[in-house]
């Protein structure tokens, strides 16, 4: 099972000049091949275009050059079927209850009503939201709201799950617990996971492979394999190789981050 589930070939992204500004070369060229069922993470200094990369793969924004393929089909400015995204920001619809929020994920799926009800119930149960189904997002904590968004994504049974710093707004303990949760889901649903994060330990703990991105324009400057077993959880942070991976990531990123800081220091 090493066929490429997602493939990027020479992908770049440039933003056109806004009034009075210059055109921005945000990303690339990037070549990537993500395997079927893999847990893939991307880390990089802030502003390197990580989130843009995710939006390119999700079809939310078109690439300037190059090609992106998902399951062998090119993504051209259209949201492909079988993709789910969890964003960093709170994306719960505040006017819908937890159950209605989760149902929203199936609105366009064309599933029969009883099948729909079953899948919504399963997704809610899987994220441990059962007793909160009739509640409104405002009554839940940030971590619980993020679970609602994950359930809403899972209910559509995505084959590729894109996570854009999904735990960025949560506190450290909740992050670790959510990490375990995501690992469990990844094993259960068998989807490919693509995680964007700025937290090195998070990437080192969760992913099979980690791409390190350079400062803008973001390119892949290092690729780290973790060789974790498929059955794993947050306790692997105690292992020696966890420390080795994290420090390798940090070493590469530190140099990159220094460059960015030097640039902004020179600019002022």
């Amino acid at each position: 099972m090493t066929s490429a589930h997602v493939a990027l070939k020479g992908v770049t992204k440039r933003f056109p000049a806004s009034a009075g500004g210059q055109a921005v070369h945000a990303l690339g060229p990037i070549d990537l091949s993500i395997r079927q069922g893999e847990f893939f993470a991307v880390v990089g200094p802030s502003g390197c275009g990580k989130s843009t990369l995710l939006e390119l793969i999700a079809g939310l924004t078109p690439a300037s050059e190059g090609q992106i393929e998902f399951e062998g089909r090119a993504i051209e400015n259209e949201i492909p079927d079988g993709i789910g995204v969890v964003f960093q920001e709170d994306a719960c619809f505040p006017w819908l209850s937890v159950r209605e929020n989760v149902e929203f994920g199936l609105r366009k799926a064309g599933v029969a009503p009883d099948e729909k009800a079953r899948r919504v119930r399963d997704a809610i149960a899987m994220m441990g939201l059962g007793e909160f189904a009739p509640s409104y997002p405002a009554q839940l904590s940030g971590g619980m709201r993020q679970r609602v968004c994950i359930a809403r994504t899972l209910v559509a049974k995505p084959r590729l799950l894109l996570l854009d710093e999904p735990f960025g707004a949560l506190d450290q303990q909740t992050r670790l617990l959510m990490g375990d949760e995501v690992l469990r889901l990844w094993r259960e649903i068998g989807a490919t996971v693509f995680l964007i994060t700025h937290a090195l330990d998070e990437a080192a703990m969760l992913a099979d492979r980690i791409a390190v991105m350079s400062a803008r324009p973001g390119t892949v400057i290092d690729m780290v394999e973790t060789h974790w077993p498929r059955e794993r959880d947050s306790r692997i942070v105690e292992q020696e190789s966890f420390g080795a991976t994290t420090s390798r990531l940090w070493k590469t990123l530190r140099e990159e981050s220094m460059k960015t800081m030097g640039r902004s220091a020179a600019a002022t």
Binding site: I79, G84, F87, F93, P94, G105, R107, K108, A156
Partner: peptide
Amino acid sequence: VLRKTASICRMGPFETAVHVTLPF
């Protein structure tokens, strides 16, 4: 992010207005 979520759920401009923008 709510508009993006609607896009991910493959909603067109009209559906986005009816199910996301106006309720908000």
